[in-house]
Structure formats: C-alpha cells, structure tokens
Amino acid sequence: MAREDTMDRTKISYQSGDATTPSIGGSAIIAHLCNDLGRWGKGFVVAVSARWPEPERAYRDWYRQRESNDFALGAVQFVRVSADFHVANMIGQHGIRSSAGGPPIRYEAVDQALERLAEFAAASNASVHMPRIGCGLAGGTWDRIEPLIHARLSSRGVSVLVYDLD
C-alpha cells in the first residue's frame, strides 16, 4: 500500500487494527514500551514476538549486557526486522507491578525515549506505529501519554498512527 499523501503529519492518527501490521507503506517503526527488569512476555510484546523473533532476542541480550551498554529508563533499542521495518524497544516502565509509589510507568522516561524515537524516525523518513503505549500493563493514562507523543513526534512532522485492537 502506498504512503497516503493526504495524512496530516502534525496530528496523531487513530485507527482500529494491529500495530504490528502498519497500514501505510514505506519505512515504519513499531514502537512499544518495555520494563527495566528484562522481562518480556505479556501485553503487546506477545504480538511483536509472534511476528518477529528479533526484538525479543535483542531486548534480552541488551538487558543481559546492561553493565556495558545504555540499558536504562529512557533508552531505546532499534531492531531491524525487515528492509522497511524497525521495532523500537523503549524502556519506559520501572518494574512490572504497581507499588506504593504508583504504577510502573515513568513518564519522564517515556518522554526521553520518544525524543530518541523522533530523531531516528526523522533520519529514517519513517512513520511510527504503536498501540496506546504505557496504558496497559505499565498503568499509565492516555491523557498523559498523548501530549508527549504530540510534542516529540507529530508536532515535528513525524507521522504517528495509534492502533486500537478490535
């Protein structure tokens, strides 16, 4: 499918469907949040792993070697899964369970990761596709996440499509 020239690149677009199967052509980045514990296996990552084995393998290696790399809140790992697609493993949650300190989401880390995502997307001339990141297992709210996506990505002309699974 060809890239839609009529898409307003300064707005976040929403549609029903699976974020692992982008609805527009060209270079695309599938973005999602990960935890800082090296755990992978629930939520959106199940769909990512069902489609591509590389993102999970890369994330687990990144975590295992964290003493000698940038694995931390706010970091992003870009994993090429095909000629036109990357998966962005963004570290945006501390732990996996809510505690007295609140849910695992860390909005500042999400903001930092989105900044890195914006730089990579712009340099790659890629659109960004994602579920409502941070609003599932991470315990975040879309009214806090959406403005971050707008500020870091769509306001800079990066096409962003958010998918709501049917």
Rank of each mutant, 00 (worst) to 15 (best):
G74S: 09
D18I: 10
R132Q: 15
C34R: 07
H94V: 06
E56Y: 00
K42H: 10
P55Y: 04
A58K: 10
A28H: 09
R116M: 11
L37R: 12
S124G: 06
G17D: 12
T21Y: 11
S68G: 06
Q15S: 09
A83E: 15
G17W: 12
I133K: 06
N89C: 11
S49G: 09
N35K: 04
S155P: 00
I29N: 11
V110F: 04
N69L: 10
Q93K: 13
S127K: 06
Q65V: 02
I145Q: 02
S99R: 14
R132D: 02
G17R: 13
R64W: 03
R132C: 07
C135W: 07
P104R: 03
K42S: 14
L33M: 14
M130D: 01
V46H: 10
P22M: 09
R51C: 03
A113D: 03
G102L: 05
T20Q: 06
H129G: 04
N35R: 04
T20Y: 05
A47Q: 12
A88P: 00
L73Q: 09
V76H: 04
S82T: 12
A47S: 14
G25Q: 07
T141I: 06
V110D: 01
V87T: 03
V76R: 02
A88L: 08
S99V: 03
E115C: 02
A126R: 07
W142S: 06
P103C: 12
M90A: 13
R116E: 13
G25E: 09
A28D: 02
W40Q: 07
S155W: 09
R152F: 01
S99K: 10
D84N: 14
P147V: 07
A28V: 02
Y14N: 08
P22G: 08
S155F: 08
V76D: 01
Q65C: 07
G136A: 03
G74C: 07
E115V: 11
V48H: 01
F71I: 11
A123G: 13
A31Q: 09
F78C: 03
W142E: 05
A72G: 10
M90E: 12
E56F: 00
